[in-house]
């Protein structure tokens, strides 16, 4: 998610100045993503440059609120209407790490899988504790609970995927690859063609 769209979404509620936007942003993601005020003002300048927000006259206290413009509202609607593509997200470092573990001589893949699974499980336990604690507060903040649930489901998905890796790959794993050696001449010729 871009901070740009986050700020546009918050401004849909009404004009806000930088500090208010920062607080509202952190409240809506339950403290899982903290912004510094510099990031907020840099992003607001760019949004203003692109015509998505407009700065209103400064208040008596000297704060300049920003307001969503028509094009800004269209941009926000388009963001909500467009699903996030897998290619928009960073590469999955864990998948790459496991793929490399499979093909790197001397790596105990089962140990790599298990240490990742334990780490994921521990995170899942912590998120569950946070959720229980949040539920016990009166009418726990719904947006915060949704963010927590997202993290819980991501942990679960990772653990299920690790289980899957273990079951389908580790048990049928071919003999470990020998340590790097020069390929036979014939293979080198083939590789060139």
């Amino acid at each position: 998610m871009s901070i740009r769209h986050g700020l546009l979404a918050l401004l849909e509620r009404g004009p806000m100045y930088g500090y208010q936007l920062r607080v509202a942003f952190e409240e809506s993601v339950g403290g899982t993503w903290s912004l510094n005020i510099g990031q907020v003002y840099t992003t607001l300048s760019r949004l203003e440059r692109d015509g998505f927000v407009v700065a209103l006259p400064a208040s008596e206290g000297g704060q300049r609120p920003y307001e969503l413009t028509g094009p800004g509202r269209t941009e926000l609607a388009s963001w909500f209407a467009t699903p996030l593509e897998r290619t928009d997200r960073p590469r999955d470092e864990l998948a790459i790490k496991l793929a490399l573990a499979m093909t790197t001589p001397g790596v105990d893949v089962a140990a790599v899988v298990q240490s990742q699974r334990t780490s994921g499980m521990r995170a899942l336990q912590e998120y569950t504790r946070l959720k229980v604690r949040s539920d016990k507060r009166a009418q726990g903040d719904l947006s915060w609970l949704l963010v927590l649930d997202a993290m819980i489901f991501q942990c679960e998905a990772e653990i299920r995927w690790l289980d899957h890796c273990e079951a389908t790959i580790l048990r049928d794993r071919p003999a470990p690859a020998p340590a790097a050696q020069p390929a036979p001449a014939a293979d080198r010729e083939e590789a060139k063609s």
Partner: peptide, 19 residues
């Protein structure tokens, strides 16, 4: 038993790492 999730850390630390 090949592993256990061990003692828990604090939830707050985890959130800091997530952010």
């Amino acid at each position: 038993v090949i592993d256990s999730s061990g003692p828990l850390g604090t939830a707050e630390d985890l959130l800091e790492h997530t952010s």
